[in-house]
């Protein structure tokens, strides 16, 4: 199998693996390669701001951000994977180690794909804007959208997953990367989101919610120590800024600046 298999990525997006992330068809290598590449692409687009907004363009921001984004995604996975596995095991979710890992890789890949697909837009706005606050908020919104879509995929996959003994054939059937399977998986999850969730998987979704808060915390904290990504136009280039401040504080400050409340 190729490292960068388009079929693997497109199949994932189209929901061929939505019902069950356990399948051997989930090509771990391809997902890993795609998420590293796509995260780097988004990082590159982030770096464009350093080409337009500073007095002298600094291409090192491009390199820095393109290298840091994959580190961020892989790092957050490494730190939070053990807790996810243990949480799910304690809540009787019949998923093997490999399945949990596959689900996590799939979610990360969706996240990387969504942000990278919005990358050209970020690149364009970065090149044509002078406002650091605007670019910062745009990027926070895009990462939020990517995170939301990735989480939705995981929640759907988990809500679809029945207990081992009462598994309906439909969900456990090996999903093939064909259009029809994608449709059934999608419509199945649609019907689930419309009707109230079954009592059984709701506990799992609950524990997943707790874990997601944990993940979000780890992700933002990791992102915080990896700063700068965009680079404030007046700050000189550094690879890392060291420990100071926090993510929430800065977002609130940028919002305040944009709305003219504070400076």
């Amino acid at each position: 199998m190729k490292w960068l298999s388009w079929k693997a990525l497109d199949g994932l997006l189209r929901g061929a693996t939505k019902g069950d992330s356990s399948q051997s068809q989930l090509d771990f290598r391809a997902l890993l390669a795609w998420q590293v590449l796509l995260a780097a692409v988004y990082g590159l687009c982030l770096g464009f701001f350093a080409l337009s907004a500073r007095e002298s363009p600094d291409a090192r921001f491009l390199l820095g951000a393109a290298a840091k984004l994959p580190v961020l995604i892989l790092g957050a996975t490494l730190v939070t994977f053990p807790s996810l596995y243990v949480f799910l095991a304690l809540f009787d979710v019949p998923l093997s180690f490999r399945q949990v890992l596959g689900g996590m890789l799939a979610a990360n890949t969706v996240f990387a794909t969504v942000i990278a697909s919005l990358g050209p837009i970020v690149g364009f706005f970065s090149l044509s804007s002078q406002s650091y606050a605007f670019i910062l908020l745009l990027n926070v919104a895009i990462c939020g959208l990517g995170g939301f879509l990735a989480m939705r995929l995981v929640v759907k996959a988990l809500a679809d997953k029945p207990k081992a003994e009462s598994a309906p054939a439909r969900v456990n059937a090996p999903p093939l990367p064909t259009e029809s399977t994608g449709e059934t998986a999608a419509s199945a999850s649609d019907s689930i989101s419309k009707t109230s969730p079954l009592p059984q998987p709701s506990g799992r979704v609950g524990i997943l919610g707790v874990w997601m808060v944990l993940y979000a915390f780890v992700g933002t904290q990791l992102a915080w120590i990896l700063r700068p990504f965009i680079g404030h136009p007046e700050a000189p280039f550094v690879w890392f800024r060291g420990k100071s401040g926090s993510f929430v504080d800065t977002v609130l400050r940028a919002l305040g600046e944009y709305l003219g409340i504070s400076r």
């Binding site: 997006l13 929901g15 969504v114 697909s117 259009e179 449709e183 999608a186």
Partner: peptide, 10 residues
């Protein structure tokens, strides 16, 4: 990407 994620990629 949004179309594919929504299940109407085809």
């Amino acid at each position: 990407v949004l179309n594919a994620l929504r299940g109407v990629g085809q």
